[in-house]
């Protein structure tokens, strides 16, 4: 393999990896507040992209994306609010199972509202054939968009969770729900907020990746699995690590193609997931001490 070829594989991996990373970040937000893993996260991505595609028929692209993010965020907020009220004795396991059910309902809803056709948003800049040179290899501008959006959300979220009162209160809810209530933190509202935020970021991700991967009603589940793998690989709850893990998995998958047949591409990420769960459940970048503190 020539150096340029290797670089090209790398860039392809980075493109895919940044998509995984941004889905993983959505997982992390809800996990950081509630300790639950929202398996409907992939559906937020699809819902956001589909809404943007429909809006784009009447409004310019930036407006369509903004509208889709707002609509999906509202839907996510409603789900979060409903979840905390409807589920009696909301234990973590119960809520996780409810999110699995929700993902099925949402997928069916998307199928009914739109249909089974594959759609796509136009490229944010350039077209499908335009590309940016990078030391002899090429990368599409949309991949740069995805990377940029990824970087901005991670930076924003890190600041939010570490330095604002609301962000800290959300972390407090995950660390100890009862104690958070006793501090005067409205736990229910924090859960709603986390679903809103997570749906908004999912929708943004959906819009950013739609030109590259295209959007179909049932692409949520495989995306969610990849995003989940990346979230675990990085260490649940750590968005910065999720980006690193996402890029790593993307590159790994991309290079696996030149060794194994293409059909095994997805097996690579599942194998990674299993390996991490067995050998390093706190994630590549997570510290064992910190994850031990979370288990009370």
């Amino acid at each position: 393999m020539s150096a340029e070829q290797a670089l090209q594989y790398c860039l392809a991996g980075v493109t895919v990896g940044s998509i995984y990373a941004i889905v993983a970040i959505g997982f992390n937000i809800i996990y950081n507040t509630t300790g639950i893993i929202n398996f409907a996260q992939g559906e937020f991505v699809v819902l956001g992209a589909m809404t943007a595609i429909s809006l784009h028929t009447v409004t310019p692209l930036p407006l369509a994306v903004a509208g889709a993010v707002a609509i999906t965020a509202a839907a996510g907020g409603l789900i979060g609010a409903g979840l905390t009220r409807a589920v009696k004795r909301p234990t973590v396991l119960r809520l996780i199972i409810v999110t699995i059910g929700l993902s099925i309902v949402l997928r069916a809803a998307v199928l009914h509202i739109w249909d089974e056709k594959v759609r796509a948003l136009p490229f944010f800049t350039g077209t499908e054939v335009s590309s940016v040179g990078f030391f002899g290899a090429r990368i599409t501008p949309q991949a740069l968009w995805v990377l940029g959006i990824c970087a901005v959300t991670v930076a924003g979220l890190t600041l939010f969770f570490r330095h604002t009162l609301t962000g800290r209160a959300m972390r407090a809810c995950a660390a100890n729900r009862t104690a958070a209530g006793l501090c005067g933190i409205p736990v229910g509202r924090m859960v709603t907020l986390s679903f809103t935020l997570s749906a908004a970021i999912g929708a943004l991700a959906g819009c950013a990746i739609s030109p590259v991967t295209q959007t179909q009603y049932d692409m949520g589940a495989p995306l969610a699995i990849k995003g989940f793998t990346v979230a675990i690989l990085g260490g649940m709850g750590n968005s910065l690590a999720a980006v690193a893990a996402g890029l790593l998995l993307g590159v790994l998958e991309s290079f696996s193609i030149c060794i194994f047949p293409l059909a095994y591409q997805h097996a690579v990420s599942i194998a990674v997931l299993l390996a991490v769960l067995v050998f390093r459940p706190s994630g590549l970048f997570g510290s064992r001490d910190v994850s031990a503190l979370k288990e009370h």
Binding site: R168, A169, R171, A172, A175, N176, A179, A180, I185, L293
Partner: peptide
């Protein structure tokens, strides 16, 4: 305010952050 049985501090957060949470109201 209640200081609960078994302490129930926010383990993965710093001491200062724990205290700030107490002033959330």
């Amino acid at each position: 305010s209640l200081s609960p049985e078994g302490r129930q501090v926010f383990g993965p957060m710093t001491v200062r952050e724990n205290l700030l949470m107490g002033g959330y109201v």
